[in-house]
Every structure is written in C-alpha cells, then in structure tokens.
Design a protein around this nucleic acid. Structure first.
Lengths: 217, 217
DNA sequence: TAGATTGTTAATCGATTAACAATC
DNA sequence: TAGATTGTTAATCGATTAACAATC
C-alpha cells in the first residue's frame, strides 16, 4: 500500500470518506479481510470507478488482481479522518436540538466527544448533562482554549447565531457545524458546515411535488 | 413575470430554492419591494449569474433594467415549494433526536407540520408530545393513510432503519428524511434524503486537518 | 432616450464514468 | 502463466461563471 504525498482531494471525494470508513469497519467487524471496488460499489451505491478514483487520490491503496485489504485501508482512513485520536468538540446552545445532540453518542462509533457545552440560560448552566458540563457563555473563551477545542456544534436560536459565531472565532475555533438557518460571516480560515433541517425538508417536498407532476403527464 | 411550462430543474438549483425563498421573505418583511441579482448575490454568497440562471429555469421572473419584484418572486417560490398550503409530515422514532425535532418548530416559518409521531416503546406511545400524538407502530399504516402523509422524518436507531423504511413504503410514503447512518433500500419512486450528523462532523474535522497541514508547509 | 439589469450564449470548471493498459 | 482487478486515460456530464445582446 503506497501512500501519496501531494494531496489535493476534491470536495466530493472528501465528503465520501466517512462513508467508506464506516463501511470498511463494518466489513472488518464481520471478519472480512478483502474487498474489491465492485462489492463496495454494490454496498454503497457509488460507481466502482468513482470509488477507485477516490481511493487513488490517496495513493495506491489496493493490489491489482486482488482488491483492497480491509484492515489496511480501514486503518489508513482512520488516520486520514483523524479517527485514531480523540477529537474533543464543544456544543453551544443547549436547547431542544442541543440537548439531543449532547445525548447523541458520537463517540460510540467514532473518537469524537462533546467535552463541553455552553448556554446563556442560568437555569441550565452549572449542571452536568449526560456527562457533559454546561458552562456559562462568559467561560467560553477560557474553556475552549484550555481544552484546545477547535470544532463547535452551534445549536443556538437563529438570531444569536452570528454574535455567538463571532465569540467562537475570537476564542480560536476553526470549525463550526452550524444548525441555524443563518449564513455565518467568518474569516477565511474558519470552516462552516451548515445543516439546515427546514431546507432539507423543503427540498424533499419539492422533489416529491415535481415527481408527482411528472407522473401526472 | 412570465412563468415557464416545461421544467427540468437541476438538482443544484432545487437545493437553493429554500434559500432564495427564505431570504425573499426576510426582504418582504423589511418592506423592500425590489431586489436585483447583485444584491442577492452579496447576501447569499452565490454568484449573481448563478442566481439569474437559477431563476430563469422558472421563466422570466424579473424585469430587465429593474431587477425582481420581491413580493412577486416570493409568492412564486411559495407556490413552487408548496409553502402556500399545509404539508403534514410524520416522525418515526421519538428518541433524543426525534423528540428534539418534534419540538423544532418547522411550521413557525413554513407551512410544514409534524402531525403524527410513532414509536415502538409503549412508555412513550399513547401520549401527546408537544401537541403531537405519539402512536404505536401498529397504527402506522392506518394513520399515514388517514392523514394522507407522504413525508416522514426517520429518527429510529440505525439497526431498525431498514425495517421501518419498508413499513413506510408499504404505507404509501414517498419521501423519507433519514437521520440514521443507514443507506435505505427503497423503490425508485421513493425519495430518501439523508442527514448524517456524524458524517458532517467527520468531514468538517477532515477539512480542518487538511487546512492545518497546508498551513504547516 | 440613457442607464440598468435581466436572460442567455459560450467558456470553464469540477465530478462522474466507460474503457482498458498495467500489473499483482 | 491465466485471471482478476486496480489505477488512469479519455469521454461525458452537470454546474458555475464571464460576458454581453436584449430589453425594460
């Protein structure tokens, strides 16, 4: 397995990495030790050429005439995705969604752990929710820096999103998983990934409507 | 404002429609009654040519030399996105995440309403959570059909995902917003939109790591 | 009419996929 | 060696964007 040094990974490829990684672990758990791109294609519903191309960005991970060694590639992706070491993230906004995500066991399957939460409501702060201490907003910078947290899950109400994002940037955070429908303005070196639940539902409903109209013709 | 009859809307465009719609409503609330593609571009961080192209798939929504009439286009998108009439959806799996989504006020800003929930746990069923009745799984088909529900939010544990999806398809559901990390196997006329929270976090962490490595060079 | 801005043509970019030579 | 499957070249597809004629 020869790895590549120079790496410009297309975004589309990067987004599929967790998928590959998860399935390789499933295979590994099942005791399978080799897999080829057609089987992967079948299981993941991704064209086999796309899979080979994706893998090839990282070097020659496979063996011609054989396929891929499940454990090798799994371990390679674990390292690539930083899953070989614990990543602590914080969560800001312990409302409905925030609470649910606190309880969501990210670390059950991955080495991601929510190690601190923050909220502006004094009824909530000072407690430990599901093993995670909930701090006041004024402790944000201190805790983020003390715990060397680089990634934050943002589940505050929409109208607070930008001002909290500013505080996060000030505290040194570089990655924000944004659950508000607000477009955050941040410096270029901060990566914002947005999950807009209403958008997802609306798009789904739109696709459905279109399919329906198509069907009526 | 001339609308188009024939419509093959690119997927990328479709996914931006809720964004446009939301922002047009914001403008409308602010009492603004005209907008042009550069201003939209500025606010939404989408190239103005992309915006004009997106809009043009739906006909000639604007006026040359003038821009777009906010109310007109807003209303047009409301119809396009089915937001001019109530859409009832169901939710299956009232665990942590399901509970949070039940309380998530989709209908506060849009005409989407969770009108029924289902769970397999008898401790939960039979109650009304946040105004939404929680039924047993055995009532699924009956309720889905009685309430003419076409879209379901799926927040069950991963291992139950496929079997529940089968039941949903059997009940006549055509759209599933899937929060499990499982790839669902469904007939061609069923649209599955997946939201994989762990994936999002892992991808974000990966991008960050890459940026960091880049920076070190 | 003069100025502004659309809607669209053409160019470009990025992602997917078919096909196959390289090679284990 | 023969058979299998990778890694990659070339073709295709879909999305974005620059540039501008059309036109309000």
């Amino acid at each position: 397995m020869k790895e590549k040094v120079d790496n410009v990974i297309p975004k589309a490829t990067a987004k599929r990495l967790p998928l590959y990684y998860r399935y390789l672990r499933t295979l590994h758990d099942q005791g399978k030790n080799r897999i080829n791109s057609s089987e992967l294609s079948e299981a993941l519903q991704i064209d086999s050429a796309t899979i080979r191309r994706d893998f090839s960005y990282f070097g020659e991970l496979g063996k011609r005439g054989y396929g891929y060694d499940v454990e090798d590639v799994m371990n390679f992706f674990a390292r690539t995705l930083n899953d070989d070491q614990l990543t602590s993230v914080a969560l800001v906004g312990v409302g409905n969604l925030g609470n649910a995500l606190l309880k969501y066991k990210f670390y059950q399957n991955n080495s991601i752990r929510v190690s601190a939460a923050f909220d502006s409501n004094p009824e909530i702060t000072g407690k430990i929710v599901d093993g995670v201490p909930v701090y006041e907003m004024k402790d944000l910078k201190e805790q983020i820096q003390a715990q060397k947290i680089d990634v934050v899950i943002l589940t505050v109400p929409g109208n607070a999103a930008q001002s909290v994002a500013d505080k996060l940037v000030d505290a040194g955070v570089h990655g924000i998983l944004n659950f508000t429908p607000h477009r955050l303005i941040t410096p270029a070196d901060v990566i914002v990934q947005s999950v807009d639940l209403t958008n997802e539902l609306q798009t789904l409903i739109y696709f459905l409507k279109k399919q329906n109209e198509e069907y009526l013709k």
